[in-house]
Every structure is written in structure tokens, then in C-alpha cells.
């Protein structure tokens, strides 16, 4: 399929972004392909996935409902999973582009690179969103935050249609003023203080801006991504001294829960724990982070 219509790129961009917003995205933008190509490591550049890509569109959907922040951590672990709604919109947007502009488009796969193994995504959706100006890296392990919508889930669309890129956000909303004052008092921000595996640390400079961010991703992943526990438990069971020890490892309640999750593909506790976001003022209190407030704002207009 080749581009048969010389697109009005401005109009096309607007139409595509409008489509995304209409379908439920809170924010959408176009990332500068050039920047992505320079920053992403080889093998993970947009062009590695789609050789003739001209534009990368990023969109974000609301993370949690407001109620989610009030439930216990163990319940949150069950619906903190990656937001599939964003992918649905991206998938639809790819069809929309192809249908409207007869130009190839793909919904960018959000999954792991099966050549590089787990923990290595094919593409960094986070990088696309950041360059597209719909999120900025926070002190909470580089989770992207948006000053209006708080914390979102992102999805991307690649297309051979050339679109005018947006710019990254001018200001990083993280750290929020209250986080700065907490940092000044105790040397830590809320996300750093309350992360259950203490995988976050860093510094804020004299101007109240991010100076350093340290993130122990391995520890954060251990918290949630229990697929790694499966072979670990099997190995432990094989090394058990006796039948009782083996049974204890394979059939204890925690591990049986794990087999359950694996067998039915339940997402429970396979997402991040998001305790860092639970205490983040931007994630929970920025003007339109709260879906209840968002719907009220919508109703008012």
C-alpha cells in the first residue's frame, strides 16, 4: 500500500489526535522521530520495528480510577496492570490512519522483545510519550507524569505518514512543591519513602528540580513480575531435601496462587505495585487525574 493522497499534514495530525481523544485518550501527541532514533538504543529504534516509519504518535489514557487509590495494596496489585484500553485506541488509530490516509500504520506492540528476553521491551512507549510532550520523567523510577492528568498509560502508533512533531513538555511537574518540602525535611520524597522495596532514591537541587534519580528496577520488578518466580521455585523444589520440603515449595499457599495466576493468565500482582504513585500528589491530585473530577469537568462543559 502506498500513499496515494498528498496529505494535509496539519489537518491529518489534528484529525488523528482528535480521533485518539474522542476514543478516550486524555492526551495525544506526535514524537520527533529524529530524536527517538538518536536516543533509543539500536534494535529498539522505531525504524528497527518499521523501516519506513515517518511518525510516531503517542497517546495516554487515565491510569487508575479514583477509588483504586483507596484500596489496600494487595487489591491494587490486581488491577494495576498495564492499561489495555490505551492499546485498543492505538489499534483503532492505526486503522483510522490507514483508512483515512491510505498510508501504512501499526499499533506499536507494547510487549517484550522476544529476541532480547524478558525485561526488554521492543520499544520504549515511555520514550515516545516523553518526546511527544505528554509526560515527563518523575523521581519515581522515571514513571511519566503529566501536570494535568497525573499518571497515564501510554500506547503508540507508527505510521509512514509524515506528521509535524510536538515538543517535550517545557516544565517537569515532578517534584511537586509538597514533595520538595518533604525532601527538605527528611531527605526523601513521598515515592522514595514509601516504596516497599526501597528501590527509589535521589536528590532535588536548590531550585527544587530533579538533580538525581536512582531506580533499582530489578527490585521493583521482583515486587510484581512473578513470572521469574516460577522457574526459581521449580529449581528450589528440585533442590529440596525431601518430599515434604518439595511439597512445601510447590504447594504452599503463596506458590499455589502463583500457579493459579500462571494457569489462568490472571494479571494479579503481575503489574507494578504503584505504592509510589499512591503517595504521589501529581498522580492522585493533579486537576484532571481524578476520573470523578474529569467527568464533572466534562459535564460542566
Amino acid at each position: 500500500m502506498a500513499s496515494t493522497k498528498s496529505a494535509d499534514t496539519e489537518g491529518a495530525k489534528q484529525a488523528i489526535l482528535d480521533y485518539c481523544l474522542r476514543k478516550g485518550a486524555l492526551a495525544a501527541g506526535v514524537a520527533d522521530l529524529e530524536a527517538l532514533e538518536r536516543i533509543a538504543p539500536p534494535g529498539h529504534r522505531p525504524s528497527d520495528l518499521m523501516p519506513k516509519v515517518k511518525s510516531v504518535i503517542s497517546l495516554g489514557v487515565g491510569g487508575q480510577t479514583q477509588g483504586a487509590w483507596s484500596v489496600p495494596a494487595k487489591a491494587m496489585g490486581y488491577f494495576g496492570s498495564t492499561e489495555t484500553r490505551a492499546y485498543t485506541i492505538a489499534y483503532g488509530a492505526a486503522f483510522f490512519i490507514e483508512g483515512m490516509y491510505q498510508t501504512p500504520a501499526i499499533y506499536c506492540p507494547p510487549d517484550m522483545d522476544n529476541e532480547k528476553g524478558p525485561r526488554v521491551p521492543l520499544q520504549s512507549l515511555k520514550l515516545h510519550a516523553e518526546i511527544a510532550g505528554i509526560g515527563a520523567r518523575s523521581l519515581a523510577g522515571d514513571i511519566l507524569l503529566h501536570p494535568e492528568f497525573g499518571y497515564m498509560y501510554y500506547a503508540s502508533i507508527f505510521t509512514e505518514l509524515a506528521l509535524e512533531p510536538d515538543q517535550p513538555m517545557a516544565e517537569n511537574p515532578c517534584p511537586a512543591p509538597s514533595c520538595v518540602s518533604m525532601y527538605r525535611q527528611i531527605g526523601r520524597t513521598p515515592c522514595q519513602k514509601f516504596c516497599p522495596v526501597q528501590c527509589l532514591s535521589g536528590h532535588i537541587d536548590a531550585d527544587g528540580k530533579q538533580a538525581e534519580m536512582h531506580y533499582d528496577m530489578a527490585a521493583c520488578a521482583e515486587m510484581s513480575q512473578q513470572y521469574e518466580a516460577v522457574p526459581a521455585l521449580l529449581a528450589e523444589a528440585m533442590a529440596a531435601e525431601d518430599a515434604q520440603g518439595r511439597d512445601d515449595i510447590l504447594f504452599d499457599p503463596d506458590n499455589k496462587m502463583l500457579w493459579y495466576k500462571m494457569s489462568v493468565g490472571s494479571g494479579g500482582l503481575l503489574a507494578q505495585c504503584f505504592e509510589c504513585m499512591r503517595v504521589c500528589p501529581i498522580a492522585t491530585k493533579s486537576p484532571l487525574a481524578d476520573p470523578i473530577r474529569r467527568s464533572k469537568a466534562k459535564a460542566a462543559t
Binding site: A35, I39, I131, P168, M169, Q210, E212, Y215, D216, M217
Partner: peptide, 13 residues
């Protein structure tokens, strides 16, 4: 697995 970021270089391009 271990990440350190100084400043905000990616966002600032």
C-alpha cells in the same frame, strides 16, 4: 536493572 538519571536530559533533548 540499575538506573541513574542526572538532570532531565532526555526530555530536554
Amino acid at each position: 536493572n540499575k538506573q541513574t538519571r542526572r538532570g532531565d536530559p532526555i526530555r530536554e533533548l
